[in-house]
Amino acid sequence: MSNEMTITFESRSSNEAFARSSVAAFIAQLDPTVGELNDIRTAVSEAVTNCVVHAYKDTIGKITINVRLTDNNSAIIKIKDKGCGIEDIEKAMEPLYTTAPEEERAGLGFAVMQSFSDDVRVRSTPGKGTSITLTKKLRLRVANV
């Protein structure tokens, strides 16, 4: 059964926990394993932190997360901002590359998203914003008869 939800919230660091918990709570209806839910929480946390730290660096803006559950048991999670955008996506995705060392960012945000989900897509326009689409396939469980 397909299903969908959207939340919008301000880019405050205190909302990072709210964002990952909300996405996990919605996806819980697919009966994921504890490990799958932890993977989703981790990937979403990275994407939202990027919005807080980079997209809206010296300002507060809106972050929108849309989650779509598909008939084949996948969760498609889109995290969008209207912040500064990314000049060089390839560079931004390089492990250990960071533009915020003073915040002690490890430069692993995209590496973690890639490792903890099945597919990561990035679309960005400098000055307009960024959208990250994470796809997580949940393994099919045998239905109880």
């Binding site: 946390s45 990275e46 960012r105 945000g109």
Partner: peptide, 13 residues
């Protein structure tokens, strides 16, 4: 219970 790459930055620092 949970950690993202911020935890890695914390340890590295």
């Amino acid at each position: 219970n949970f950690m993202d790459s911020s935890g890695i930055g914390l340890i590295m620092g």
